[in-house]
C-alpha cells in the first residue's frame, strides 16, 4: 500500500474492531449507508477475513433519509452477506414514545435516540459500533474509543475510562452498554482518500447531480415531502452534492460539479468549510450535539 498514513489508521481500526468482537457478547454495527459507515464495513471485512463479519448491521431509519442512500444500503448489505436490522422512528412515533417536532425546522434527528435505545434493549446488544470521528465536532473530540453508557444510554464525560496506549477496557455491568468508535482518529480527508484507494462505491447523493432545492437561511436543503415549507423559502434547481448525508430535512447541499471521488476530494480540501457545517441540527446551539450525546445519541 502506498499511503503510509492510511495504513497506520487502518491498522488501528482493525485492532479496535477485533477487540470489540472479542470483548463483547453481542455487538452490532450501526450502518446508515453513508460514507463513514461504508468505510466501516470495508474495515470490518478486512479485520475478520477470511472469517465472516461476526455481527449484524443495524440502521435506525428516521423515514426521512434520501431514498438513494436506503437503496444503496440494501445493496451493499446483500453484497457483504451480513444481516441488516432496521428499526423505524415512525414506529416510535406511532407508539407515542416520541413526538414529531413542529415548525419549519422540524427534524427527526433527535428522535432517533429513543428508537436506538429501544432496539439495543430489544436485541440485547452490549456494544454498538459507530463511525463517528473526533474531527467532526468539538464534543466528539472528547470521546474515548470505548465509550461506556449507563442503563439510559447517557454519556458521562467526567467519568470516561482512560485508554493509555490504546489499551481498551470493555468490561461492563449488566444493563450498561458501550459505543465503540474504530475510526475515531480518521479525518474527513482520510475517509475520502480511503474511498479512492479502496475503490468503494457510494450513494449517488455524494456526487454532483441536478436537484430541486429549498433555499432557507442561506442554506440549500433538498426538496422533499418531509420538509415543512414556509412562504419565505425559495425553491430552485441546481447542480449540487451532499458532503454529509443525514436526514433530508437537516442536511445542506453544496453547489458543485464534482462527479468523481477525485474531484470531491479536491473540492472538499479547497473548501474552508467543515463537514458538520452542513448539519443544520448542530446549529441549534453551540452544544447541540453534546446535549444529544448526553441523552444517548451517537
Amino acid at each position: 500500500m502506498t499511503n503510509k498514513h492510511l495504513y497506520k489508521l487502518e491498522n488501528e481500526s482493525i485492532y479496535i474492531l477485533r477487540e470489540v468482537a472479542a470483548q463483547f457478547k453481542k455487538p452490532v454495527l450501526l450502518f446508515s449507508g453513508g460514507k463513514d459507515s461504508i468505510v466501516m464495513a470495508r474495515l470490518a471485512q478486512k479485520a475478520f477475513y477470511p472469517s465472516k463479519i461476526p455481527f449484524s448491521f443495524m440502521h435506525i431509519d428516521t423515514g426521512h433519509n434520501f431514498p438513494e442512500t436506503i437503496a444503496f444500503r440494501d445493496e451493499i448489505v446483500k453484497k457483504l452477506d451480513v444481516n441488516l436490522i432496521v428499526r423505524y422512528v415512525q414506529d416510535s412515533i406511532d407508539e407515542n414514545k416520541v413526538q414529531e417536532e413542529a415548525g419549519k425546522y422540524a427534524s427527526r434527528n433527535a428522535l432517533q435516540t429513543v428508537t436506538l435505545l429501544d432496539a439495543i434493549e430489544e436485541f440485547g446488544f452490549d456494544v454498538c459500533i459507530g463511525g463517528a470521528r473526533r474531527d467532526e465536532e468539538k464534543s466528539r473530540a472528547k470521546e474515548r474509543i470505548f465509550s461506556v453508557r449507563d442503563d439510559f444510554g447517557q454519556w458521562d464525560y467526567k467519568n470516561q475510562r482512560p485508554e493509555p496506549f490504546q489499551m481498551l477496557n470493555g468490561k461492563i455491568q449488566f444493563g450498561e452498554n458501550v459505543r465503540a468508535f474504530p475510526i475515531s482518529n480518521w479525518t474527513e480527508e482520510d475517509i475520502w482518500t480511503y474511498i479512492l484507494q479502496e475503490n468503494l462505491d457510494l450513494p449517488t447523493v455524494y456526487f454532483a447531480h441536478q436537484r430541486k432545492l429549498v433555499k432557507r437561511d442561506g442554506a440549500l436543503i433538498a426538496h422533499s415531502d418531509f420538509l415543512n415549507i414556509v412562504e419565505s423559502d425559495e425553491i430552485e434547481e441546481q447542480s449540487v452534492r451532499f458532503r454529509t448525508v443525514g436526514d433530508m430535512t437537516c442536511t445542506a447541499a453544496f453547489l458543485s460539479t464534482a462527479d468523481t471521488v477525485e474531484k470531491v476530494l479536491k473540492e472538499n480540501m479547497a473548501s474552508k468549510h467543515s463537514e458538520r457545517g452542513a448539519r443544520i441540527d448542530d446549529k441549534r446551539s453551540e452544544s447541540a450535539l453534546e446535549d444529544r450525546k448526553k441523552g444517548g445519541y451517537f
Binding site: 474531527d135 464534543s139 472528547k142
Partner: peptide, 30 residues
C-alpha cells in the same frame, strides 16, 4: 476551538482530552 464541552467553556478549563487534527503540506498532526 478546543474546549469542547459546555462545562469547559463555562469554567474556562480543559476537563478531558480533546483530539485535534490538522495537516500541512507535508505532515498530518494529531
Amino acid at each position: 476551538i478546543t474546549d469542547g464541552l459546555v462545562a469547559e467553556r463555562e469554567q474556562g478549563i480543559t476537563i478531558d482530552v480533546a483530539h485535534i487534527y490538522f495537516s500541512t503540506d507535508t505532515h498530518k498532526f494529531i
